[in-house]
Every structure is written in structure tokens, then in C-alpha cells.
């Protein structure tokens, strides 16, 4: 009779990577729904298209790399990348834009570095940043929350890039964009003179709130620890609040910073990517705080409408360095504990 010969522990809590990924996907649903409500079917079309592409590309690359396809597809990491990209890309993305972003994310940012777990940069953010630099016009065509396109119109744009009355009739600048190009007005003047800004602000406020909800659910499920998102939101809020107190006419308030753009999506779904962030909890605090500060700087002084892709990629670069300096003290290495009567 042969018994199994295995190393301890022989017990396991039976958790799986795929269940973590599934929770992340589920947690995006509130945000997805609210975003669809405000900006139309574009996000949904994006999501389906990106998912199909991501899974297909993942399978092709796995085959080329001679890795087992089924278990790697089943871990759901490609779908998470697809979801995050689809949510981050503007609703008016044509098919090729999503294709470029997903291709670059899955093939270049993920698999060329060795696949899941080995990529130094967040794949979704690499894809997003590439498109932002290469196709700035397409990347800034955000729908106006006032107008809703029919599914047919949306698909027509998606596939042919044609729309009645031209795209400019249907899009508008994001609130962050509007607040940055104030044309000499104070924020209050801008707000009273531009009803679009208020509309945009309220729409993105709702969307951010929905992502916050999803993020809190993940936190409750212990998919990640609170360190990175809290540090990021705190540092962004702190910087924004400080500057707003100094020059309220020029700098939007902390609340506006926290509830516009991709703040909550980034805080709970991207900064928390374990593969590319710092390792220890102390390291995650530094990592999150770094992202928050960079976001504030780029939003306030940079030339792009939002800053998350760049802020996160820059912090991805710094993660190994952060790890070096934030290694926690192990049991028995704490100074305060070692005061026994030796």
C-alpha cells in the first residue's frame, strides 16, 4: 500500500486565485452599471470586446509559450485586465483603440515579462498609457452625461467611427479637463458659467461612489488589505485639501479630487494590484501615498486630463526600491521586546 508522500501542511483553506479574481470582477459591477447609466452603452460594448480580446490573446500567447491554456485562462487575470481597461477607456472608443490597448496589456506588459505574477507594470495601465500617448484625441472623447445614444448609434461609432452630426456633438470634456483649463476664471465662476461642469461632476461623483462601494466589499472580503487604497486616498485628499485651502479659486477641493476622474477605480482596483505594488504592508502605505501625491501633481500641473496611468506606472517602477526599505521586522528582531534580563 502506497501512501501519499507530501510536505506539510496537509491542510489548506481551499482558496483559489481564481476566486480572488472573480471577486474583483464582481466588485466592478456597481461602477459599471452607474457608468453605463451616465455615459451609455459604450462602456458595455468596450467591456465585452475587451474581454473577448483578452481571453483570445491570452490563449494565443499561452500556446506560443507552451503553457497549459485552460488553468491560466481559468485564473481570471486576463479578464480582470480587460475589465479595468474597458472601464478606464472612454465610452466612445472605436474597436481598434481597445484592441491596441488590450494587445499591449496582455502580450507586451504581461506575457513578455513571464505572465501572471512576473509583470513589473500593471498591464491595464500600460495599455491605457500607450493609447493615451499615441491616440490622445480618441482617448479624450468622453460622452456627455446629458445625452444618451441608442445601442445602434453606439455600435455604429464603435465599428465605423461614424455618427450623425459628428462626434463633437456627442462628447464633452471631462470635469477634470474643464477645471484645469479655467481660462482665467475662478473655479466658482467656472462652475456658475458652465452647467456642463456641474453635470459632469455629479455624474463622476456617482460613478466614483459606486466604485467605492465595490472596493469596500473587496476589503470586507479581505481580497486586499486597506493599506494601499487608504494611503492613496489620504495623500491625494491631503494634498488637494492643503492647496485648496491656500488658493480655493485655483485648486479644486479634496472632495472634488476624490470623486472625479478614476480616483476610486484606481484606489480599489488598480493600486491594489498585488503583483505590481509594494510587498509589505508598510510598503503598500508608501506605494499608495506615492500614487496619491503623483496624481495630484500631474492633475494640477501636467498636460493630461487624468493622471492615474502615469502615477501608477511610476510607482510600479519604485516598488522594488520601496520593498528594500520597508522590510518588516521579524519575530524576535523587535528592539522593544528584547529587554529581558539577559
Amino acid at each position: 500500500m502506497a501512501f501519499l508522500n507530501l510536505s506539510s501542511p496537509h491542510h489548506h483553506n481551499l482558496s483559489k486565485t481564481s476566486s480572488i479574481m472573480m471577486w474583483v470582477l464582481l466588485a466592478t459591477i456597481p461602477g459599471l452599471l452607474v457608468q453605463t447609466y451616465f455615459y451609455g452603452y459604450g462602456t458595455l460594448i468596450n467591456l465585452i470586446w475587451a474581454s473577448v480580446l483578452a481571453v483570445a490573446l491570452e490563449a494565443i500567447v499561452l500556446r506560443l509559450r507552451r503553457r497549459p491554456i485552460r488553468p491560466h485562462i481559468a485564473d481570471g487575470s486576463a479578464l480582470v485586465t480587460a475589465f479595468l481597461l474597458a472601464l478606464a477607456l472612454p465610452p466612445f472608443s472605436p474597436w481598434w483603440l481597445t484592441l491596441v490597448a488590450v494587445l499591449f496589456a496582455i502580450v507586451f506588459a504581461k506575457h513578455l515579462y513571464g505572465g501572471l505574477g512576473n509583470n513589473p507594470f500593471n498591464p491595464a495601465m500600460v495599455g491605457y498609457a500607450l493609447c493615451l500617448i499615441a491616440f490622445p484625441v480618441s482617448m479624450t472623447q468622453w460622452a456627455s452625461p446629458e445625452i444618451t445614444l441608442s445601442l445602434g448609434q453606439q455600435l455604429q461609432w464603435f465599428w465605423l467611427e461614424q455618427i450623425d452630426g459628428g462626434i463633437d456633438a456627442w462628447t464633452q470634456a471631462t470635469p477634470l479637463d474643464l477645471m484645469r483649463h479655467t481660462k482665467g476664471l475662478t473655479l466658482n465662476e467656472l462652475s456658475s458659467s458652465n452647467p456642463q461642469l456641474n453635470l459632469g461632476l455629479s455624474a463622476s461623483g456617482w460613478i466614483n461612489a459606486a466604485y467605492l462601494l465595490g472596493g469596500l466589499a473587496l476589503l470586507a472580503k479581505r481580497v486586499f488589505t486597506w493599506h494601499a487604497p487608504v494611503a492613496m486616498l489620504a495623500s491625494l485628499g491631503f494634498c488637494a485639501g492643503l492647496f485648496h485651502m491656500g488658493e480655493p479659486d485655483l485648486y479644486p477641493s479634496a472632495t472634488q479630487h476624490l470623486f472625479t476622474g478614476a480616483t476610486m477605480l484606481a484606489a480599489f482596483f488598480i493600486v491594489t494590484d498585488p503583483v505590481t505594488s509594494a510587498t509589505s504592508r508598510k510598503g503598500k502605505l508608501v506605494f499608495g501615498a506615492g500614487v496619491g501625491i503623483l496624481v495630484f501633481i500631474i492633475r494640477s500641473y501636467g498636460s493630461y486630463p487624468d493622471a492615474f496611468a502615469f502615477a501608477i506606472l511610476l510607482m510600479n517602477l519604485s516598488a522594488p526600491l520601496i520593498d528594500t526599505y520597508t522590510q518588516p521586522k521579524a519575530y524576535g528582531h523587535h528592539q522593544k521586546h528584547n529587554q529581558g534580563d539577559r
Binding site: L4, H11, L14, T17, I20, S77, L116, R222, T279, A330
Partner: peptide, 27 residues
């Protein structure tokens, strides 16, 4: 007991770090 499973790539999720009683970085 836990079945013999093929293991996947480490994604540095940090759950091990949370669980480690020696305060190490198992990942």
C-alpha cells in the same frame, strides 16, 4: 485533507504575510 493541487503563479497577494506568525514576508 487538502488535495494534491497544481500550484499557480504567486501573485504576491500578501495573504501569507498576513498569516505569518514570525512576521516574515513569505512571498
Amino acid at each position: 485533507l487538502a488535495p494534491v493541487a497544481d500550484h499557480h503563479s504567486c501573485i504576491r497577494c500578501g495573504l501569507c504575510e498576513v498569516a505569518c506568525p514570525a512576521e516574515l514576508l513569505p512571498q
